[in-house]
Amino acid sequence: MSVEKIPVKKARPNDYTSEHHPVWCPGCGHFFILRALTKALAWLNLDKENIGLVSGIGCSSRLPAYLDVYGFHGVHGRALALASGLKLARPDLTVIAAGGDGDGYSIGGNHFIHACRRNMDITYIVMDNEVYGMTKGQPSPTSDPDWHSKLAPKGTGLARFNPMGIALASGASFIARGFSGDPNGLTKILTEAIEHKGFSLVEIKSPCVTFRPEQKDWHHAMRLMNVTLTANPMEAAQAIYGSDGFDTGIFFQADMPVYEAEAANEKPHSDSASMESIEKALLV
């Protein structure tokens, strides 16, 4: 990561924004996440061209176009798979994946589990508003069971998906919750997450003012940065399962084996010498 370099020029948050204005609704929590992310990148003084920002589909997945970095707006649910390929091929890059709760926890659920399990050095930002916004208000895996919608007039009756619990069980080495309405806390969490070597889940409560106007009240419910950091998964499990979802901070951070590019570590021979030995092995 280029934080180890002696900074020649201190970057500013606006250096990382593109000229495009987000498609998000006025008041959407995602604006504040965009801002916190650019602040974190500036704080870390990362070179723009060495950042890969990958997303899937959904309101939040529009993020890459709004930053002046190498972005990829892929298909629904597969941001983490795409990010994993990018990170393995280009270990020199800072790789960030971003998306929403439907993208990451429903259609992308399997990739979420296995990205945690690989614990590659990727930061995963989930902008969780407990609703499918782009398709105009259907219940997502993190919606409350009794939330009424057109698609589920009586609510889904299903318990909420617990992303942080799943991440812990699956092997992620950094697990945090942030709130879009807490720019300073969120910037701190994102900075720590990007700096952390391993898979970092940053689950961010981000109100959808259009389809979940009641989420505007989250402001009153949140208990900001009140979590005690631990490297002990048992303690982390207690904190994650003990929280009603309104506590923010870093719940878990541990030094765990990171899946890395094998080739980057050792490559003793030139391509032509390697090719020669590969072809020699085919001889009768």
Binding site: G52, A83, S84, G85
Partner: peptide, 9 residues
């Protein structure tokens, strides 16, 4: 998708 990510890189 991994292939696409690596190739993008």
């Amino acid at each position: 998708n991994m292939v696409i990510g690596a190739s993008f890189g």
